[in-house]
Design a binder for these strands. Structure first.
Lengths: 199, 199
DNA sequence: GCACCGAACGAACGATCGTGCTATTTTCGG
DNA sequence: CCGAAAATAGCACGATCGTTCGTTCGGTGC
């Protein structure tokens, strides 16, 4: 890995933390340069435009999400255990180090939902594939006979996302100490309502 | 209502629409002035500071929410009907006119959750009182014997908020045409899981 | 008719935004 | 160890940010 590549990664790593807190529009070249002890132009030359920086931040975030949430959870046996592992990792990711501003993608989702452009398009693709992944694991759990066959995988994926968003809201805005417990309860209820009697 | 008061209200009315889309930080004095055919300084003189403008926008949004969601729903008989009316009105409010950027408070919540200051403090108070109101109506439904007595009102309020956030995400970011249907289903499931056999 | 006041305007401020140029330094293969 | 290439710095630009100041204009009370 050349020098340029390593500083580029350092930039992106820090940019994610900043963007989680102040959004992509609040993510400033000047601020980024100052906090990383670089010159504005030196940092800028890695990306050639603000928009390219934003896209790379999104892609880097997605890569980290796959690395820390998806990949480890896929080690769990398919069906319900894998679904539970995904949710657990997801929750852990949302907490992450306290310095980080919660789940990066939650912040991006509400910022970009009204801002057309390549960044929004990319985020939509990423989020769709994540929800589809969730729904796929749900479908597997149905095939395994762990969830009732009339369960709607997309609806469950949608509701699981809602539980995460509610957790984020309660935890980060309202400082509710019971937020994590509530999130786990929400998710457990979603599963219980669909569980087969046998399982 | 004097001249000043009426233009101040026109400013706030438009500011809410803008802020729903681009956030409070994206809400610019210059932009606001341009879109309302005022001079920057003329508009500014109504508020004396950007922060005061932000606070008034939040307060104005809260007043509109109470007017359009809370007050009409309180006309429904207490207990479950009132809870359902609140959710229905809430959903309608989130859709509102298509020009508006979805639920104003959803946008504010994720923007301000990592930005300490008076604006965040005010928003936290507003959101807490809204969730407490929801929980109160749930508690009434329990006393009425419509929901099982072991139901946790705070958890249900929390989950209802999650359903709204998931709706917002699916509808505004993912352009999911089934978003509204999913939101209604989510909320119905929340109630069904807690309904008393008799009701 | 004169004094006053609220409302709005135009111009300017320092700061910061993203973005180009041109040097200068640093890195690294031969 | 040298020279090409990559990485970074320095400086400047037009635009826009929030904010301040002095001024103008229409209306209202005395």
């Amino acid at each position: 890995m050349g020098k340029g590549e390593s500083t580029r990664e350092a930039i992106l790593r820090h940019a994610i933390v900043v963007a989680s807190r102040v959004g992509l529009s609040g993510l400033t070249i000047g601020r980024l340069a100052q906090e990383l002890d670089l010159s504005k132009s030196g940092l800028f030359s890695h990306f050639h435009s603000k928009e390219a920086l934003e896209l790379q931040v999104l892609e880097y975030g997605a890569a980290r999400f796959v690395e820390n949430v998806v990949k480890p959870a896929l080690a769990a046996p398919r069906g319900l255990p894998r679904l539970q592992a995904l949710f657990d990792r997801w929750l852990t990711w949302s907490q992450s180090d306290p310095s980080s501003g919660g789940c990066f993608f939650v912040a991006m989702a509400t910022e970009l939902d009204d801002r057309p452009g390549p960044a929004r398009d990319l985020l939509v693709r990423l989020q769709r594939s994540w929800i589809d992944l969730l729904a796929g694991v749900v479908a597997a759990a149905i095939r395994e006979g762990q969830l009732r066959p009339d369960s709607d995988p997309d609806q469950l994926a949608h509701d699981a996302y809602g539980a995460m968003l509610a957790y984020h809201h309660a935890s980060r805005l309202l400082d509710d100490p019971a937020a994590e417990e509530r999130a786990r309860r929400s998710f457990a209820s979603l599963l219980d309502a669909r569980r087969t009697p046998a399982s």
